[in-house]
């Protein structure tokens, strides 16, 4: 068979390869409209949380900057900060940290619940990325000197990084691995212990 003839035969025969039916225009359009409306509603719901995230990050950044400034100012070395050694001047940091832990808990609880039945939405990855940068600030803050909290933050950093990567690599195995990691390291339990539920003054009685 000559190349030209072969190509002609090939092209003709290939027209039957996965021959598409008529385009289901109306059905697909209805689905597109519904999907966009659902996304729009989700965005509206998430917007206030985003503002909180920026606020928390700003307070933590300020805390880290003050910490670094006081350390370089030649003051006496500070003892590691544990539950009983936090002074009243750290109130802003403690509130920001409590809010951060509350958001992390909400994200991980939601992630675990949603991934039982379906694939997680991209919003989880977006929120995980925001929290990830706050986690790094937390590790640099006085919280990073508390061994118990530091271990929790490091586990959180790992889980959040895995969730943040999900849009590019989503598959059930990966999601299962994240959930197994959450269970195995008791991340949610430790989060709740570090940041007990309740009004502001009670919240800061955990690891913070």
């Amino acid at each position: 068979m000559t190349d030209e003839r072969f190509e002609r035969v090939l092209r003709d025969a290939a027209q039957d390869y996965h021959r598409p039916p008529a385009t289901p225009r109306e059905e697909m359009w209805r689905q597109i409209v519904a999907a966009r409306e659902a996304r729009r509603r989700r965005r509206v719901m998430l917007r206030p949380r985003l503002r909180w995230g920026v606020g928390i990050a700003a307070v933590l950044a300020l805390g880290v900057a003050i910490g670094r400034w006081t350390a370089t100012a030649g003051g006496p070395a500070r003892a590691p900060i544990g539950p009983s050694t936090v002074g009243p001047s750290d109130l802003a940091y403690r509130l920001a940290a409590a809010q951060y832990l509350t958001r992390a808990e909400a994200l991980l609880t939601g992630f675990r619940a949603e991934t039982r039945g379906a694939e997680p939405t991209a919003q989880f990855a977006t929120q995980a990325r925001e929290l990830l940068s706050t986690t790094r600030l937390m590790l640099d803050s006085p919280a990073g000197q508390d061994l118990r909290l530091k271990a929790l933050l490091e586990d959180l950093e790992l889980v959040l990084a895995q969730i943040a990567q999900l849009p590019a690599t989503t598959d059930r195995e990966e999601i299962q691995m994240i959930n197994q990691g959450l269970e195995h390291r008791s991340v949610l339990l430790r989060l709740r212990t570090a940041n007990p539920a309740g009004p502001g003054s009670v919240r800061t009685q955990g690891a913070l």
């Binding site: 390869y17 996965h18 598409p20 039916p21 385009t23 289901p24 225009r25 697909m28 359009w29």
Partner: peptide, 13 residues
């Protein structure tokens, strides 16, 4: 939509 759907169908089957 026709061209996008056709391509998607050809590739996905």
């Amino acid at each position: 939509v026709d061209r996008v759907y056709r391509l998607a169908y050809r590739l996905a089957g």
